[in-house]
């Protein structure tokens, strides 16, 4: 089998997707990043290599997500793209005709507006991470319920309580207050879902024309409570594609196909990188008072990449292609 590999390294999860040359998804892996992007990508590659039939040929690999540069260096990516472009590309293929994409991931949330198959507008959360997956994760942990069960418990709500959703800190104290008043757990969870949806629509979706079909994706789309809250608030049906949690990786794979076809070759280093010893270190550059934290990725004695310097003193020492 021949195909393309897409890798999405996010703050909460790392996803890998293998698709055949026609763009049909053959394997999808969802892993928790747990603060170790390199090890997680390696684990994912190993798992993928085990699942794929022997002799599988990777014709291109793309990376996306907040760890895209890091992952791109490790695997030798053909396309390193931001997650907005990746998500839009994936939705257009998996949900033809999509006009609105609601995406809530671990650390950020975004809305993408598509018209006639082209991204016409997008917005992303600004300085605040309230209303993203990490916050839900944290609250689930605090209430001692597994995040996977969050949604179904929220669906049992009879009358969701009102929770302030503008700020994660206020939301938490509001929730604690409601708990101490004796509100039931399902009502609180459903209230939280509604608060997050309100916050998302006011903050991220502000001023955008939300038209059907609406696609909801990203890790948080696994939460049925959130789906229901969106449908209630928008008054529109909300679709969740079957690969909702790995859409970024799907997009990265599609972009890799585009790039590798154009270049006529792939830079993929092979599944062997799962065994290689990569080291990520950082040092503070003493060159000026900015004291930039320079991150360095090494394999053995070889420096693969550096970034983080404002002036380019360290990153420019390596070839441009690798750093960009």
């Amino acid at each position: 089998m021949k195909g393309y590999l897409g890798i999405d390294v996010g703050s909460v999860s790392t996803n890998l997707v293998f698709m055949n040359e026609g763009g049909i998804i053959r394997e999808a892996i969802y892993l928790r990043t747990q603060g170790q992007p390199i090890a997680t990508v390696q684990r994912g590659l190993k798992e993928l290599a085990d699942r794929l039939p022997a002799g599988t040929q990777v014709r291109g690999v793309g990376t996306t997500g907040s760890g895209r540069h890091l992952a791109g260096i490790i695997v030798g990516a053909d396309a390193v793209k931001n997650e907005i472009t990746a998500h839009a590309v994936a939705s257009l293929v998996l949900v033809p005709g999509a006009q609105t994409i609601l995406e809530i991931g671990g650390q950020d949330s975004k809305i993408i507006i598509l018209r006639d198959g082209v991204v016409t507008d997008f917005a992303m959360n600004t300085v605040c991470a309230a209303g993203t997956g990490s916050f839900l994760d944290q609250q689930a942990a605090r209430l001692n319920i597994p995040i996977e069960r969050f949604g179904e418990i929220a669906l049992e709500a009879e009358s969701p309580v009102r929770i302030a959703g503008r700020c994660a800190v206020f939301a938490e104290s509001d929730m604690i207050h409601k708990q101490q008043m004796g509100c039931s757990l399902p009502d609180i969870l459903a209230g939280l879902c509604e608060a997050l949806v309100r916050n998302y629509l006011n903050n991220v979706g502000k001023g955008k024309e939300i038209l059907s079909p609406v696609v909801f994706q990203g890790g948080v789309a696994a939460n049925v409570g959130m789906i229901k809250a969106f449908e209630k608030e928008l008054g529109l049906p909300v679709q969740v594609p079957s690969y909702f949690d790995v859409m970024g990786a799907v997009g990265a794979g599609l972009l890799a196909r585009e790039a590798a076809t154009k270049n006529g070759r792939s830079y993929f280093k092979g599944f062997g990188v799962a065994e290689a010893k990569f080291k990520a270190g950082s040092f503070e550059c003493p060159g000026c008072p900015n004291m930039c934290e320079v991150v360095e990725i090494t394999e053995g004695d070889l420096v693969l990449a550096r970034w983080g310097d404002r002036c380019g003193k360290w990153s420019n020492q390596l070839s441009k292609e690798k750093v960009s």
Binding site: K81, I84, T85, V119, F122, M124
Partner: peptide, 15 residues
């Protein structure tokens, strides 16, 4: 910041 800028530039270029 970089993600937002890249995505914005992508959007404008595709338009």
């Amino acid at each position: 910041l970089l993600t937002r800028l890249e995505a914005f530039v992508d959007l404008l270029a595709r338009r």
